[in-house]
C-alpha cells in the first residue's frame, strides 16, 4: 500500500522527458499510472525515479491521418473506447479498450501505457497486433517504428529500450473490405476483467466475398500477446465460411506456448482460444 521513496519528475515537454530518461538509470515512465502505481504500492517494482509524462501537451489526442489513426501516449482507455473514428476503423481496439479494467481505470489508464506495460492478459495489445498497428518509440536520439507484432517480447516486457517512450500508437485505417472484432472470456466470466483468453481478429474481404488477408491477435493464453500466423494464413483465400473459420480456430495456438494459470489448464485455454477465434472471426466477417 505504501510505495518506496522515489524521485518524481514531471517534465513539461517530450524532449525534457526523453533527456531525463536518458540521464537517469532505472527511471520509469508513467502515463496514467494504473498499472505502475499498484505494482509500486505492493513493492513488486520500485523505480528510483518516476518520470510522469502526464503534463506534456499534445499527447492526449486521437487524430485521423491519411492512412492511419494516431493515438497519443496520453489517450485514456475510455477515449479509445468511445472514439467514433477508432470504432469505425479499428473496432477490435475500441472493444478491447472498453473491456479494459473498470470505469475509473479507463478514465485514467492509457492505451499506450497498456501496450508498454505488456501484461500477458491485457486486451488492447491483441487488438493492436491484429490491426497491424505500429508503435512509435522515441528516445533522445530519435524515433523508430516497431510493428505491434514485434513489440510484446515477454511477460511485462516490451521492445522499448530503457531510454524510449512509446509516444504514439498508429493504427492503419480500414479499407473497404477490412474489419475487425475482439472477443474474450474475462477472469470473472463474460467480458469482465483480464482475459483468460482473448482474440482480436482482423480480416480483409474481397469483392467476391473471399478473405484476401487476415491477422489474429491472441492474448491471455501465453507469455505474451502474439500473432496467430498459421490460423490467419489458413483463412486467406477461403470464403470465410463456417468451415474455414473452424479450421483457422484449430490452428490458433500453433507456435504459442499456452500457460496454465489460476484461470485455466493448458487444454482449457487452448480450447477457449479456439472458441473466441471463431467468435471474433464471425463478428469481424459479419462486419
Amino acid at each position: 500500500m505504501f510505495p518506496r521513496q522515489f524521485e518524481y519528475v514531471a517534465p513539461a515537454s517530450l524532449d525534457e522527458a526523453l533527456s531525463a530518461l536518458a540521464s537517469t538509470p532505472g527511471a520509469k515512465v508513467m502515463s496514467g499510472g494504473q498499472s505502475l502505481i499498484p505494482m509500486m504500492k505492493l513493492r513488486l517494482f520500485s523505480p528510483g525515479t518516476v518520470i510522469d509524462i502526464g503534463r506534456i501537451d499534445g499527447l492526449a489526442d486521437i487524430v485521423e491521418k491519411d492512412d492511419h489513426i494516431s493515438i497519443g501516449a496520453l489517450v485514456r482507455h475510455n477515449q479509445t473506447a468511445s472514439d467514433p473514428t477508432v470504432a469505425a476503423h479499428a473496432k477490435a481496439l475500441s472493444q478491447a479498450a472498453g473491456w479494459t479494467g473498470d470505469h475509473q481505470v479507463r478514465n485514467r489508464g492509457t492505451t499506450c501505457g497498456a501496450m508498454a506495460h505488456a501484461d500477458v492478459a491485457a486486451d488492447q495489445p491483441a487488438a493492436a497486433i491484429a490491426l497491424g498497428a505500429t508503435m512509435m518509440a522515441r528516445s533522445s536520439s530519435g524515433q523508430r517504428e516497431i510493428a505491434a507484432s514485434d513489440f510484446f517480447v515477454d511477460a511485462l516486457t516490451s521492445a522499448l529500450s530503457e531510454d524510449e517512450i512509446l509516444v504514439e500508437l498508429r493504427v492503419p485505417k480500414a479499407s473497404n473490405g477490412s474489419r475487425s472484432a475482439y472477443d474474450k472470456l474475462g477472469r470473472r466470466g463474460g467480458h469482465t476483467d483480464y482475459a483468460v483468453a482473448g482474440i482480436a481478429a482482423w480480416v480483409n474481404v474481397g469483392d467476391d466475398g473471399s478473405v484476401t488477408d487476415a491477422r489474429i491477435g491472441v492474448t491471455g493464453v501465453g507469455t505474451r500477446p502474439t500473432l496467430a500466423e498459421a490460423a490467419a494464413a489458413s483463412l486467406i483465400g477461403t470464403d470465410g465460411g463456417e468451415e474455414s473459420i473452424r479450421a483457422a480456430a484449430g490452428l490458433v495456438t500453433d507456435g504459442i506456448t499456452v500457460i496454465e494459470d489460476l484461470y485455466g489448464s493448458v487444454e482449457y485455454k487452448t480450447h477457449l482460444a479456439q472458441v473466441f477465434t471463431e467468435r471474433a472471426l464471425q463478428q469481424a466477417l459479419a462486419g
Binding site: M1, Y8, G33, I37, D102, Q104, N107, R108
Partner: peptide
C-alpha cells in the same frame, strides 16, 4: 473503488494516483 473521488470531473481511484500527479 472505496477511494473513488472526482478528479477534474472524472471518477478516479485516489489510491492509484500520486498526490503530486
Amino acid at each position: 473503488g472505496a477511494c473513488t473521488v472526482l478528479v477534474d470531473g472524472k471518477a478516479t481511484k485516489s489510491c492509484t494516483v500520486l498526490a503530486v500527479q
